[in-house]
Nucleic acid binder design. Structure first.
Length: 679
RNA sequence: GGCGGUGUAGCUCAGUUUGGUUAGAGCGGCGGAUUCAUAAGCCGUAGGUCGGGGGUUCAAAUCCCUCCACCGCUACCA
């Protein structure tokens, strides 16, 4: 019985290029969709660019062109990347479409009619130069609690306290570098608390969510009244103006998920079908694939909107973890922040698709792209194990037909057909890593079969030519079976295998019936091995601020302008202002973890002699204690001591960088002595 | 701080729901026999006090308590 399944992946934001972190999700989703299609289900994959919001508006301004022009260009670029990664959408739309606007309005009216909309004043910082309100992430300043500088508008990374942007000391707009002022404007809110009971039930029963997600929502949100959701932004804002509230725009997170429906609608119009068959029907399953960072939008607000407006609720929201590279967050400076296009400049997408598949389970754990493992896995599994099966025996039967009827293989093919049922369950449950393990096991069996039968020996004996043909027919049938199972991951390989065996591979059921009498065409390499150099070049190209050096050219300093843009210059100060700050060379005598602190290390500094300082520094993510002991650093020695949750901090150590792992301590040149003043 | 997750062989991970034979796989290492194949494949082998400690039990990787480490989330960010 065929199912009707509608699948979405999160909408990529039109503010940047697709990178390998995004691709984890699109590959995961694409594999699932291809699997469903292969199984004979009607499965449709919809996506779109997410085009609204302040960030888009600002970027378009900076580039001196219209938002529409910018998002159109970005959409083209996204589509090209997806296409080249063999991610196939049934429709790819835009949240800035007439369909989306109309649907936003429909859902909005439903929310109004249900009495869920209210208006409240919101006080925010306002950038008078850019004439826009500033979300917390666009404001930086000094933490009002601990005095740490360069903290975002909502919380301090150093002491962990939260506050409102208005409390921030010396706030600076990261958009213009000017000092913003506090302004108040009315916003529209949706009271999802009125749907609390429904959300309790929907999130906790019916298997719509992974268990850890249900748990998270229950503890984190549903254990207390749900706060009203702020869904409007005052002008100027790039988005849709709210029909019954002039001057107010729907917040980007209101219209983004509605883009799923809008993209479906665009497709329906092309097919001349009605939208309700897909979004208002008990016969349609809806599956969302998203990253764990946007969980609550999709598991609280979104079901609430759908419920209120009478659309289908998601059958399942599949949530995955983040991608790390070599065990760390992707980093531009390390060259591990790899754009899709950069990857494609050097490598076949098949490797990435397979590697991701071999790592993905149905959990929320982050998955790591270890580059050496990536190379080894692709070469060992795909080339050495899988493609090698065909490569080992195709030429013995080249140009001839496969045996008919299918010869006795001792039950190998049937065992493979049975394994297919287990593999299908793994795909269905998004447990791809298990599926890949099962598939590779089949490849091992096939290789062993060839080893045992030794077709190369049979070839030498004119009496055994029929036997040779039987052996190769069996091996190629095992190969074909395996390729069908892995075809959602490696569609290209399926195409090539189809050409080799003169039969298109496009249905899972083909794996349960062996091929007989087909002509085997000339074998050509189906997949190349990865050379380590290709990966190195990709990393080089990804390294920010470093063009690929031309051969024989001397390296030049080519520092990025980004840091200064991220953190604009402070206002001018006098020498008198400067000398107020007493910077001293200090030696780190001790460094240790602070129990209960996420970001802090406790340092004992020596200023020479018996002068000791206890300092809490927010550098835990970047440095381990044992690497610090003995180092010379620069500290702010006359900073007023600050009582923190973990004790008294008697100064600061100087460091640059945006925070987190990107923190770089200042080190004096050798010869400097603890206690010396920095002038 | 709160919450969620993770911790098993050098590396990546199964196994934990429902305790029960000598804890598994792939890669990597080492040894061997081969040579059809993209130096691939096959056979054999070494390697783990299952994060630490305590408890329940005839029996714990698995259940309970506690501690430690790492990752993530923490609503007018996207």
């Amino acid at each position: 019985m065929s199912r009707r399944i509608l699948v979405t992946a999160a909408l990529p934001y039109a503010n940047g290029q697709i990178h390998i972190g995004h691709l984890v999700e699109y590959v995961q989703t694409d594999i699932w969709v291809r699997f469903q299609k292969l199984r004979g289900n009607q499965c449709l994959f919809f996506c779109a660019d997410d085009t609204h919001g302040t960030a888009i508006m600002i970027r378009a301004r900076q580039e001196g062109r219209s938002e529409e022009e910018m998002i159109a260009e970005m959409k083209e670029s996204h589509l090209q990347d997806f296409n080249d990664f063999q991610i196939e959408f049934d429709n790819y739309g835009s949240t800035n479409s007439p369909e989306n606007k109309e649907l936003c309005n429909r859902i909005w009216v439903a929310l109004r009619d249900a009495g869920l909309v209210s208006e409240k004043d919101v006080t925010q910082l306002f950038d008078t130069k850019e004439e826009t309100f500033l979300a917390d992430r666009f404001v930086k300043g000094t933490c009002p609690k601990c005095g740490a500088e360069n903290q975002y508008g909502d919380n301090c990374e150093v002491c962990g306290s939260t506050y409102s942007p208005g409390e921030l000391v010396n706030p600076i707009s990261t958009l213009s570098g000017t000092t913003p002022e506090i302004r108040t404007a009315p916003h529209l809110f949706v009271s999802i608390e009125k749907l609390h009971e429904f959300l309790d039930e929907w999130t906790q029963t019916g298997n719509h969510l992974q268990p850890e997600v249900s748990n998270y929502l229950k503890k984190q949100f549903l254990s207390e009244p749900l706060r009203d959701w702020d869904v409007s932004r005052p002008a100027p804002y790039f988005g849709f103006e709210i029909s019954d509230a002039p001057g107010h725009y729907w917040y980007v997170w209101f219209d983004a998920p509605i883009g799923y429906i809008a993209s479906t609608w665009e497709w329906c119009k092309k097919q001349d079908e009605g939208l309700s068959k897909y979004w208002q029907s008990n016969d349609t399953e809806i599956h969302h694939f998203i990253g764990k960072d946007i969980t609550y939008f999709h598991t609280l607000f979104w079901p609430a909107m759908l419920k209120t407006a009478g659309f289908n609720l998601p059958s399942k929201v599949h949530i995955h973890g983040f991608l790390t590279v070599n065990g760390e967050k992707m980093s531009k400076s390390r060259g591990t922040f790899v754009n899709a296009r950069t990857y494609l400049n050097h490598l076949d997408p098949a490797y990435f698709r397979y590697f991701i598949a071999s790592k993905l389970s149905n959990g929320l754990d982050d998955l790591d792209l270890n580059l050496q493992e990536f190379i080894d896995k692709a070469n060992a599994d795909l080339v050495g194990k899988l493609v090698n099966i065909a490569s080992r025996c195709a030429k013995f039967i080249n140009g001839n037909e496969m045996s008919s009827p299918y010869p006795d293989d001792g039950g190998l093919f049937n065992a493979g057909a049975e394994a297919g049922e287990r593999i299908a369950v793994c795909y269905e449950n998004c447990d791809y890593s298990q599926a890949m393990r099962e598939i590779m096991q089949l490849a091992e069996v096939a290789n062993k079969y060839i080893e045992d039968q030794q077709p190369w020996t049979l070839k030498k004996d004119p009496e055994k030519q029929d036997e040779l043909r039987n052996v190769c027919s069996i091996a190629l049938n095992l190969f074909r079976q395996i390729v069908i199972y892995i075809s959602p991951v490696l569609p290209d390989l399926a195409t090539k295998t189809g050409e080799l065996l003169s039969e298109k591979l496009d249905a899972w059921s083909q794996a349960s019936t062996p091929l007989t009498g087909n002509t085997v065409n000339k074998f050509t390499h189906m997949m190349k091995r990865i050379e380590e150099e290709q990966v190195q070049k990709m990393i080089e190209e990804s390294r920010e601020g470093q063009e690929i050096p031309e051969e024989n050219t001397a390296p030049e300093w080519d520092d990025s302008a980004q840091p200064l843009e991220d953190e604009p210059m402070s206002e001018e100060c006098s020498i008198d202002d400067f000398v107020k700050v007493d910077l001293r060379v200090a030696r780190i005598l001790e460094a240790q973890h602070v129990e209960g602190a996420d970001k802090l290390l406790q340092l004992t500094l020596s200023l020479g002699g018996e002068n000791r300082r206890n300092v809490f520094a927010g550098i835990k993510a970047a440095y381990s204690p044992e690497d610090l002991v003995g180092r010379l650093v620069v500290c702010v020695a006359n900073l007023k001591p600050r009582k923190m949750r973990f004790g008294l901090s008697e100064g600061m150590v100087c460091a640059s960088g945006p925070g987190g792992k990107e923190v770089f301590l200042l080190t004096p040149d050798s010869g400097a002595q603890p206690g010396q003043r920095v002038h």
